[in-house]
Amino acid sequence: MADAEIVTRGLTKDYGGGRGLFGLDLEVADREVFGFLGPNGAGKTTTIRLLMGMIRPTAGSAFVHGLNCQKDAVKVKKRVGYLPGELPQFGGLKGAEVVALLAGLRGGVDRQRVASLAERFDLDLGRRFREYSRGNKQKLGILLAFMHRPDLLILDEPTGGLDPLNQQEFYRLVKEAQNDGATVFLSSHILSEVDHVCDRVGIIRRGRLVRVAQLEELHHIRVHKMEVEFAAGVPAEAVRAATGVENVEVGDRRLTCTVRGSFDDLMHALGTATVLNLTSHEPSLEEVFLTYYKDELPEAPVPASTVRA
């Protein structure tokens, strides 16, 4: 990739016992929104903390804008807006003081930019940090990451604790940052979230990168489990014949199936049947991995539950 903003080469952090991150080769292009997708304990946070120079790799290297993340850690951080997975405890400081403290350390933060971000997320900076709810703490973290208009945003599970309205506001903010020339690297364990904002997605499991996919492929991956309850007869054959519909099982006035991609064909297949109830579940990442990336998964079973991501 000619103008990559983030490059990792064989990046490894071995915590022992099969935990950590192993041989990560990744390139994120300039002005790209890259989603780093994986279940809890997959190695997402480890990757992010390696990029931020907070921890040292066991092997391999990482570069941001051509700068080595270890040797040039301070220069890297000056370019980055960072949202950690767990916000620090600022105790009795008011939100306004936390912002002033970190803006003072960075320098060059526009007060009006801060006011605009606080307004968008309806965040009261006059309250003490310890009085903030989980969602408000997350909003403050987002404000701190975006306030200096950084070239690169590294965001660890950024929508955790946000309500749907604020999630939408966050997605708009990410798109605006991209339009202003920023690159965004965000981690998530929610498939639909990366679908909202990302150009490409890296899928990680048990410390290894399983695949880097375009958004179209992600749409292909997104499989919904459907459960339909009918008033009378079940149009089983029509449903089986519908495009994208698989794993059809028919019970007494009840039908379950999986749908990949568009719902259009399934809706046509249901035709004139009277539907009493229809529910749709997005499969967990683990189910997606087991269904679609069985052959690409790491060979040795390793305990992943204790790895932070």
């Binding site: 933060v109 965040l123 900076l125 006059g126």
Partner: peptide
Amino acid sequence: ERGPQRLPTRNPLLAL
């Protein structure tokens, strides 16, 4: 009784 605050504090000590 006060409205929400949106601006960071101007306390210069926090920047030193």
